[in-house]
């Protein structure tokens, strides 16, 4: 999860949503996909709303 970029996460999330909405997944696959989707959503939301302390520090250090 750490290595993924926002854009990659969003793309994967979109693919999952399409797959879920296609109605072709069985319940086991659906459960797996929903689990992955909630991970991706949490990741994207964090990027949008939580300050990345590490990045902030790097930016502050630019003289």
């Amino acid at each position: 999860m750490k290595k993924i970029t926002y854009t990659e996460a969003k793309k994967e999330l979109e693919a999952i949503v399409f797959a879920i909405e296609s109605g072709e997944l069985d319940v086991d696959a659906l459960t797996e996909k929903v689990k992955r989707a909630s991970e991706l959503i949490a990741f994207c939301k964090e990027k949008l709303t939580k300050t990345d302390i590490e990045l902030q520090k790097i930016l502050d250090d630019i003289a």
């Binding site: 969003k10 999330l13 979109e14 949503v17 909405e21 929903v34 989707a37 959503i41 994207c44």
Partner: peptide
């Protein structure tokens, strides 16, 4: 967009 994707899921 993320929220709407979440809602769809």
């Amino acid at each position: 967009e993320i929220i709407s994707l979440e809602e769809r899921v």
